[in-house]
C-alpha cells in the first residue's frame, strides 16, 4: 500500500452532488444547442457511475440497439479536472441531425453527404460538450481548455475501448445524460471519462461546491 495515497473513493453523496452539477451543466448545454437549432431538447436526470473504463462498454450497450453503430464526437479537456467528453448518437440518427441545421432560406442539405454529416456532428458535439464541461468547470471553480472535436464515425460498440483510446485500467467517472430532440426522435448520450489523477481534486471540489450554499 502506498501510504501517501489520497482517498479517492466516491461516496453515494459525492455521486449525488456530481449528478446535480451535471444536471445544471447539461441544462446549460442544451439551452445553447436549442437556441442554435430552434428546437426543444428534452432532458433526463443524469446518472453518475464510477467505473473502470472497461465497464463503459457494457454500460453503453444498455442504451443502444443491438446492431446499431455509433457516431461519437470526442473532445479532450484540460484543467484541474482533465479528461475526455464523448457525445454519442446511433449512426441511424445522423440524417436527422444534419437536418437540424437546415435553413429555410437555403436549398435543402444533402443528408447523405458524408462531409456535411461530419461537419454537423462536430458542430453539435462542440456546442454540447463545450457548454457542458465549461459549466461543470465554472461551478467547481476550475478552468478548462479544449482540444478540437474529433469524430469517430460508425463505431461498432464493441470496439469502443480501442476507438476512444481508453486505458482499460483507468478508473473513470461516467456521467451519462440521455436526451431527446423534440420532433426529431433523436436520442443521444453524453459521457465524461476522467483518470484517477482528477479524482482527488474532484472529490474536494464537490464538497466545496456544497459548502458555498
Amino acid at each position: 500500500m502506498n501510504t501517501s495515497q489520497t482517498d479517492t473513493t466516491f461516496t453515494k453523496e459525492d455521486g449525488a452532488i456530481l449528478e446535480e452539477v451535471m444536471n445544471i451543466a447539461f441544462g446549460k448545454a442544451s439551452s445553447e444547442l436549442a437556441t442554435v437549432v430552434d428546437l426543444r431538447i428534452l432532458l433526463n436526470a443524469p446518472k453518475v457511475e464510477f467505473l473502470q473504463a472497461d465497464d463503459l462498454l457494457r454500460w453503453i450497450k444498455q442504451d443502444t440497439a443491438d446492431n446499431d453503430t455509433l457516431n461519437m464526437i470526442e473532445q479532450n479537456f484540460w484543467g484541474k479536472y482533465t479528461g475526455s467528453a464523448f457525445l454519442a448518437f446511433p449512426t441511424s440518427a445522423s440524417k436527422g441531425l444534419v437536418s437540424l441545421f437546415e435553413d429555410d432560406d437555403l436549398p435543402p442539405m444533402d443528408e447523405e453527404n458524408p462531409l456535411l454529416v461530419k461537419e454537423n456532428l462536430l458542430e453539435i458535439g462542440n456546442i454540447l460538450i463545450g457548454a457542458c464541461v465549461s459549466k461543470v468547470a465554472e461551478l467547481l471553480d476550475d478552468e478548462v481548455t479544449f482540444s478540437p472535436p474529433r469524430l469517430i464515425p460508425r463505431m461498432v460498440v464493441d470496439n469502443l475501448a480501442n476507438e476512444a483510446r481508453l486505458d482499460p485500467d483507468k478508473v473513470a467517472i461516467l456521467i451519462k445524460t440521455v436526451f431527446h430532440i423534440q420532433d426529431k426522435d433523436i436520442k443521444g448520450f453524453l459521457f465524461l471519462v476522467a483518470g484517477e489523477e482528477s479524482m482527488a481534486w474532484l472529490k474536494t471540489a464537490l464538497q466545496n461546491f456544497m459548502a458555498k450554499f
Partner: peptide, 27 residues
Amino acid sequence: LTADIQPKAYETVMGLGAAMVVPKPPS
C-alpha cells in the same frame, strides 16, 4: 427552480401559470 433554461421551457411554464422561474443553482 430548474436547470432547464431553454427559452421554450420558460415559455411553457409561464404559460402554465408559474409565478416565476429561478435558474439552478439557486442563491
